[in-house]
Write a protein that binds this DNA or RNA. Structure first.
Length: 231
DNA sequence: TCATTAAGTATGC
DNA sequence: GCATACTTAATGA
């Protein structure tokens, strides 16, 4: 395993108030692991034995319906805590986390959670802040799903991915991890066919440019207009 | 307006 | 060359 550098955590919100020595302690007790694209870090319903911090890559947080289709609840970007079941007073994970791209995460046993909360200033408040933000985001997409037409939902989903992971490229802003039409349909409660048709139409209009598993938003403003949000 | 069915092409290991 | 990703048209709720 590679030696972990303190600078990995120094600027991340859950740890930004800590002394170097405390960060050293935290790193010394962390396990670092690499996950191939498509691999599960943990699965819904399983014993929550560890909590995690994403260092690099992107994750899909997924729940499965009784019918067997899956729903993408949200994405995790680098620097975020995840799998923090102890903060929810749960002993099982509420959802499955899948590496959307090759990813690297640190993890600690849940038995250390109370100690982190007690000893590290800012850790608890930051954790609950992340949870609050996620809840807010989920509620937002929920009302969006219930009230907006498919076209707007797909536009919003693209914008969310762009806002979370967008990188400027020559052609526009690209989503930094692989996404399929199937994935987008799982985020928006529609079918991959409808997503394919929408992306084809938007490509013809110069709003997006996509190849397999790769999407560039070439005209973000037009997409915002399509999403029906004001700005 | 959108899902479903169906039948195709394109892409990458 | 096979599985996976993607496209498109037709039909009907």
């Amino acid at each position: 395993m590679p030696k972990l550098d303190e600078s990995l955590l120094l600027d991340l919100p859950p740890f930004s108030l800590l002394e170097r020595s405390q960060i050293r302690e935290i790193l010394n007790r962390a396990v670092s692991k690499r996950y191939e694209e498509g691999t599960a870090i943990f699965r819904e319903g399983h014993d929550a034995d560890r909590f995690y911090l994403l260092l690099d890559g992107y994750l899909r947080v997924v729940r499965s319906t009784p019918g067997g289709d899956q729903v993408i609840v949200l994405h995790i970007s680098p620097g975020q805590l995840f799998g923090i079941a102890p903060a929810l007073r749960r002993d099982t994970y509420p959802a499955t986390s899948i590496a959307a791209a090759e990813s690297i995460a640190l993890s600690w046993p849940v038995s250390l959670w109370p100690e982190f909360v007690a000893n590290y200033p800012g850790f608890a408040t930051e954790s609950y802040k992340t949870l609050g933000e996620r809840l807010g985001q989920i509620q937002e997409t929920l009302t969006e799903m219930a009230t907006q037409a498919v076209e707007k939902r797909v536009a919003c989903a693209l914008l969310r991915m762009v806002n979370q992971s967008g990188r400027k490229s020559d052609a526009g802003i690209e989503i930094a991890f692989p996404v399929t039409r199937q994935n987008i349909s799982e985020m928006t409660g529609t079918t991959l066919h409808t997503v394919s048709r929408l992306l084809s139409a938007w490509q013809k209009d110069g709003v997006v440019s996509s190849t397999r598993k790769h999407i560039v938003v070439t005209d973000p403003h037009r997409l915002v207009v399509l999403s029906g949000l004001q700005s």
